[in-house]
Design a protein around this nucleic acid. Structure first.
Lengths: 230, 230
DNA sequence: CGTGCAATTGAAAGTACTCAAGCCACGTGG
DNA sequence: CCACGTGGCTTGAGTACTTTCAATTGCACG
């Protein structure tokens, strides 16, 4: 059975949410530059030439695709240490935008990839990181393909909760729209499900962007389909 | 806009469906063995130790995850030339099963990955292949997260059609169940949509496993959401 | 204390799923 | 050769879940 849908996957922290690609880039930093971004600012757009790849220094970045009708699919949220924007293509295959204020390091892509290829050690490390990222993307496929709205939201809450080690509640760094776009739902559905979790005392909303998990086991049960969504 | 949902992505063949990881493995073949599989036979199961990675020599293999309730998400179908089963983990993260009779080459994974890492050229090539695979997985996320049942099926038919260059119709090498599990639908929904395409004269079913595309443009329109699913 | 955007709620409409039969091609045994 | 199973595919009816459209509420800010 898939680890994704098991409780442990979300809160043991065995696989930190967004930190699998955290290669020590010190020796690759030559030629890299820093760029600061305000929340909502666009870093690159699908189809742009892609001379750089990026690493999050602070803040949160989202990568997403836009469909003809304006709907979006948020592929992933990246936080400190995460690499993104790399791809074998000459042009970006998705867009990237700052979710919060933040800073990214920009690496000239060609040089970066060649530097990695030329060192067996870095190479091996990067391959592993890429495979790990591939795995996470596949987990998301399961979420999108096979989980109900309530399961998706529950899983997402657990993931956020596992990521943020704070004891003062968990923060939604992204908007409801971002969450919906990430989970393949509408904003209204996300709201309704949060409300239902609130009513069932699985979580407590302190503000719209801050909540506490009151009952991890029950949330797990919902995420895993053990509990009837209702 | 996302390439996936554009018509060309499906039938120009610019990016052959399953052939991005086709590294010339001649110099890696040392130590590799062949294994023949009958349709339906399992190659490995999620959680198995993973000493090998594999390359399809003939036939079609599917990789999938199973959920507690028995539903499955088919991550991908692999055909001749495709590599699969590699991962940084010690254990397989999904299961693999033969869709048709076929043969796979088995590479000792450690040696394989180290061989690749130690050659800058192979390394660069493999990185690109892996990124390409990552991209395809993301496209699948869009399919699963944002497309209607009719769009999913239309896109799938177009992809099959683009893959198979035959003029004698297109063959479903996999069962309806496999298709449903791949598209995040139920077997009944897949059937109904095929029937509706048949009635609209978008396709013609010659047998349950063999069809002709009668109207590519219209199928594209459905896949891209231009045509109202009806 | 408005203003404006984000979030929430309600009602109605779809869409895809579940359950339950029916159909069809094929292989087996009488 | 044909009845009988068998397994995969197709169809139907009813249901559950999610979305759509339309307000309404809440909250940060000037």
């Amino acid at each position: 059975m898939t680890a994704l849908v098991k409780a442990e996957a979300f809160h043991t922290g065995a696989v930190p949410f967004n930190s699998e690609i955290v290669i020590d880039a010190s020796r690759l930093a030559a030629g890299a530059s820093l760029k600061t971004l305000r929340a909502g600012e666009t870093l690159f757009v699908e189809g742009d030439r892609a001379p750089f790849c990026y690493q999050v220094v602070s803040g949160v970045i989202k990568e997403y695709n836009t469909l003809e009708d304006g709907r979006r699919q948020v592929a992933d949220f990246y936080s400190v240490g995460d690499l993104f924007g790399f791809s074998e293509a000459k042009h970006h295959l998705c867009s990237a935008e700052a979710v919060t204020d933040g800073t990214v390091r920009c690496y000239p892509k060609d040089a970066y990839l060649r530097a990695i290829s030329s060192s067996p050690e870095l190479s091996y490390q990067f391959l592993g990181a890429l495979m790990s990222r591939l795995h996470r993307t596949r987990e998301r496929m399961i979420v999108l393909g096979r989980m109900s709205a309530a399961q998706r939201v529950a899983a997402f809450l657990l993931r956020l909760s596992a990521e943020q080690q704070t004891l003062h509640g968990v923060t939604f760094l992204m908007s409801r729209q971002d969450i919906a776009d990430h989970l393949g739902l509408t904003i209204e559905t996300v709201c309704r499900i949060l409300t239902s979790f609130k009513k069932s005392r699985l979580i407590e909303m302190k503000t719209a962007r801050l909540f506490d998990v009151l009952d991890i086991a029950a949330l797990d049960a919902v995420a895993n389909g053990v509990a009837r969504p209702h």
